[in-house]
Nucleic acid binder design. Structure first.
Lengths: 128, 128
DNA sequence: GTGATTGCAAATCTTTTGCACTAAA
DNA sequence: TTTAGTGCAAAAGATTTGCAATCAC
């Protein structure tokens, strides 16, 4: 089940999260949510924005994607120490990562199932 | 099944990988493989080394852990964009990560099982 | 000896932050 | 107005690299 939110829904979402509808956020939201699900890096989105004549700073893209993630609109996918992706599909799912070409591929639907997993470690449950 | 390699076995392993037995590598190997399985960061191991009167540079710890990983003696565990752990248990297994206290916990034995997973994406299988 | 390894400092890369200015509500 | 958001440049962290000195073999 894909939970991609179309552009309009994303805007609602941001308003509900108390984020102002600035020019930059609107533009980035459109880039992210106008089409199908995407996996973007901060850098790639920044370049894409500028290519689309959106005047926005790299720092703002960082801030924005972090805020969107905090609001639950995006999902952060940490690949390695020097590359984080943001996934417009915020539902719980897994990925393949192509190390050679450095891109993510969704593992669709129920194709990956965790049959059994342990409880959180006891030290966490008993402390505090 | 734990595949911790005792110190002596680790030394063999390094020799087989063509890595010279330098003072720094020997010391780091002992710290890593003298006891039970460990999850260490570069920084933590560097501090530990210095606390044990091992004269070694941070850069060398970086290089060494990367070489050990390449040799298959360690496993790299990427937690987030600013923290990589190295696991002395190089076998295939999973972890819990405590975000609050920032440490890894092994998921022992067969407690986590992936019931079903998809084939690698077709574009990878057909290309090249 | 000879080439691998190390130390050191500088460089790189990603991400965050401080602050004055701008814009949304 | 009032406060949040942005740009810019600087800072912060993690990691890598260049190069001369050192060490393993």
């Amino acid at each position: 089940m894909t939970v991609r939110r179309p552009y309009a829904a994303a805007l609602e979402w941001l308003r509900a999260a108390g984020l102002r509808s600035t020019r930059q956020r609107l533009a980035l939201t459109r880039l992210l949510f106008a089409g199908t699900d995407r996996h973007v890096t901060v850098n790639a989105l920044h370049k894409e924005a500028r290519a689309n004549n959106v005047r926005v700073t790299l720092a703002t893209v960082y801030n924005t994607l972090n805020q969107f993630t905090e609001a639950g609109l995006l999902r952060e996918v940490v690949v390695d120490a020097s590359c984080t992706y943001f996934d417009t599909n915020a539902s719980h799912h897994h990925h393949f990562f192509c190390e050679e070409d450095r891109y993510l591929v969704d593992i669709p639907g129920e194709e990956l199932k965790v049959a059994k997993h342990p409880h959180p470690p006891p030290e966490r449950r008993s402390r505090r």
